[in-house]
Amino acid sequence: MRTDQRYQEGQFTVSRFRAMGCACQIVGVTGDDPEASVRLASAEALVRVVEKTLSRFDPESELSRLNNRAGQWVQVSPLLWSALDHALSSARATHGIYDPTVLGALKAWGYNRSFEEVQATPIWVEEVSSPPGRWQDVRTDPATRSVFLPPGVGIDLGGIAKGWTADILCHALADMGPVLADLGGDICALGVPPGHKAWPVAVANPFQPEADVALLAVANAGVATSGVDFRRWATPKGLAHHIIDPRTGKPAETDVFTATVVAPSGLQADLFALVCVLLGTEQALAMLSRMEGMEGLLITKDGRILWSRGLERYLIEVYGTKGGGA
């Protein structure tokens, strides 16, 4: 997933940086607003605050400190509380297909440090000490903004954090005019940029990363891609990837290579792109057909490109296809 790279100058102000383990871009339609660069710099700073709070790879992050105190009630900051609340609500909305308590399984399969480190060092696989599927056991107290994780349970927010953060950025900058926040391909797009009917967003070809399979037009919506194409590594038990199926505690066995979802928000796009991968092609397309305002494009492991019928209103072009609308 990538946004149009031609937002360079003139009425666009662009901030590009790395955070949350990925390339990020914030684009504002600002004209000659002298405060635009300052506002976008503040938005970048906000991303770094979110990363510092929610990163499971930083032992000093607030999330890491919460995970280390499983078995105790812990009062958390408003930022972490909001992220956890959205994560638990997402688990309820998907009947546990998305589960933020898969941290133990992720670590057991070798994803216990940043992906760059995972790639650079040998991987081992451990027995999962506490199976996932424990999101319903997480207790919260809104009155004191406190959280209780059962012993052995840890939280990973990777399934929604970037889409959720993109939403926060767009709404914080909405008074500037049209704005797009792209955090590693998890996107929130508000308004319409001048000269366009919507924000153009390309869907990358997972088999040829420098090529695209489709071009979408997105406005006042979120769009995100999830897949098993990138974060993969070899283990003594075979090839593993970062999408854990909470029903098994193992990397998901799925025919979906990547799933791209357009939804009313960045968080929903991020969430349901992940759910599409976990469900597989048949169930994912059936789910999308039932959900108002949610459309998707799936690329299967054998190279087929399939999309929900309603996606056609967002499609500008598909670059060669084996498949079609479903």
Rank of each mutant, 00 (worst) to 15 (best):
A286D: 11
E35Q: 10
V38T: 14
Q268P: 02
W73C: 15
W135V: 02
W307D: 02
D137W: 09
H241S: 07
A87I: 08
P150E: 03
P264K: 02
L315H: 05
T121I: 02
A36I: 09
Q75R: 15
Y314E: 08
V118D: 09
G10A: 14
E312V: 15
D58V: 13
V147I: 14
G110N: 04
G296C: 09
A45G: 12
F17R: 14
D99Y: 00
T225A: 13
L180N: 05
K162E: 08
R134W: 10
A172Y: 04
G320R: 11
S55D: 04
L46R: 15
T258D: 09
I97Y: 04
F17S: 12
G320Q: 05
I168M: 14
P178V: 03
D270S: 13
Y111E: 02
A181S: 11
F115K: 08
G10V: 05
A166E: 00
P246A: 08
S77W: 04
T254V: 03
C170S: 07
S226N: 08
T321P: 00
A70L: 01
A19W: 06
A181W: 02
S15E: 14
P193R: 02
G324H: 01
T94W: 14
P59F: 00
V261R: 00
T101L: 07
M291S: 12
L271D: 02
A219H: 09
P78N: 05
S15K: 15
T258C: 07
L274S: 12
D212N: 13
L267V: 14
D182I: 11
K301C: 03
L149T: 01
I160T: 08
V50N: 06
S61F: 07
T3M: 09
V218W: 05
E35K: 08
T235C: 13
G154K: 06
P264I: 01
M176E: 03
D141F: 01
C170F: 12
V203L: 11
E210M: 07
S90T: 14
S129K: 13
D245T: 14
G110P: 06
W135H: 08
L315W: 06
G31Y: 07
D186V: 05
R39F: 12
G71L: 00
G303I: 01
W164D: 04
S308V: 15
G280N: 15
S226Q: 08
L298P: 00
E51G: 06
T248F: 08
L297I: 12
C22A: 10
G158R: 00
P59S: 04
E35I: 09
Q8N: 09
L173S: 11
R231V: 01
L297V: 10
R6M: 13
I305Q: 10
V153A: 04
R134P: 02
V179M: 00
G31F: 11
V262P: 05
G158V: 06
R16M: 03
G154N: 01
